[in-house]
């Protein structure tokens, strides 16, 4: 009996999945190398294609069809939209109701506020969608004058954007500013100035058009008088992809 005879003998067992785990792996490895066995296995599968219908069907529980369809169709985006839209709607309604109660004189102001909040909500939704869709999250601690903070970068390779959160920074020393930098293949490309405050700084950044491939990011403290060209100040954090 040759080694191949074992595979010939167990083709049916492979299709029926009666092989033990180790045998199954051996057979799978062999199938990738043996067109004859692959052809014969396909033929057995075709012959026995309807055999699973020997199992009696089960009545679907009430609502199961709908749940299955929803489960199949549910994507990350849809899930997010379904959760976000009621919140957006509720926020708009609340603001609308508040505007009506405040009187007609307030209408213009409230409309502007509503618009502003809507745009903030849209920005927030956009931000959260980047966080949810991030393929990679980079994190580093920042130690500035004994105060500990952090920097988080959510990298969304699909949209080529970063969502950056910087928290725990004390106010910049007099005459200085915090600056975000892209570390690129060719050079450091300046990003936005980062304002320190009680709430975290949060911004969304497209990849810089110059400097070559982005390799990482850095946060420095720079002189406010110097226009951003290349970093000269103290480097507070550095993150590499």
């Amino acid at each position: 009996m040759s080694a191949h005879d074992w595979f010939v003998e167990h083709r049916m067992d492979y299709v029926a999945r009666t092989l033990e785990e180790s045998e199954l792996r051996t057979f799978q490895d062999h199938l990738g190398r043996c067109p004859e066995c692959a052809r014969e296995v396909a033929s057995i599968e075709l012959d026995l294609a309807w055999l699973p219908m020997g199992a009696a069907p089960v009545a679907l529980r009430p609502g199961l069809s709908r749940r299955l369809a929803e489960g199949v169709l549910e994507t990350r985006g849809r899930r997010w939209m379904r959760r976000a839209m009621p919140a957006a709607l509720a926020a708009s309604l609340l603001l609308g109701a508040a505007g009506w109660l405040a009187g007609r004189q307030e209408t213009g102001r409230l409309a502007r506020e509503l618009e502003e909040r809507d745009s903030r909500l849209t920005a927030l939704m956009d931000t959260v969608s980047i966080m949810r869709g991030a393929d990679r999250v980079l994190q580093a601690s920042i130690d500035m004058d004994g105060r500990e903070g952090g920097i988080l970068i959510f990298d969304d390779s699909a949209t080529h954007r970063w969502n950056v959160v910087i928290h725990g920074l004390p106010p910049a020393p007099a005459g200085q500013v915090y600056r975000f930098w892209f570390i690129c293949e060719d050079k450091m490309v300046p990003g936005p100035e980062v304002s320190a405050g009680t709430s975290p700084a949060l911004f969304t950044l497209p990849m810089p058009p110059e400097g070559g491939k982005v390799m990482g990011a850095a946060l420095t403290v720079e002189s406010a008088a110097t226009p951003p060209g290349e970093p000269r100040g103290r480097r507070l954090a550095e993150l590499m992809l």
């Binding site: 699973p52 199992a55 069907p57 089960v58 679907l60 199961l64 299955l68 369809a69 199949v72």
Partner: peptide, 13 residues
């Protein structure tokens, strides 16, 4: 889903 699920559930269950 309507047509196939009862059979698939039959196998799995």
């Amino acid at each position: 889903i309507d047509v196939a699920s009862p059979w698939l559930l039959g196998i799995a269950q």
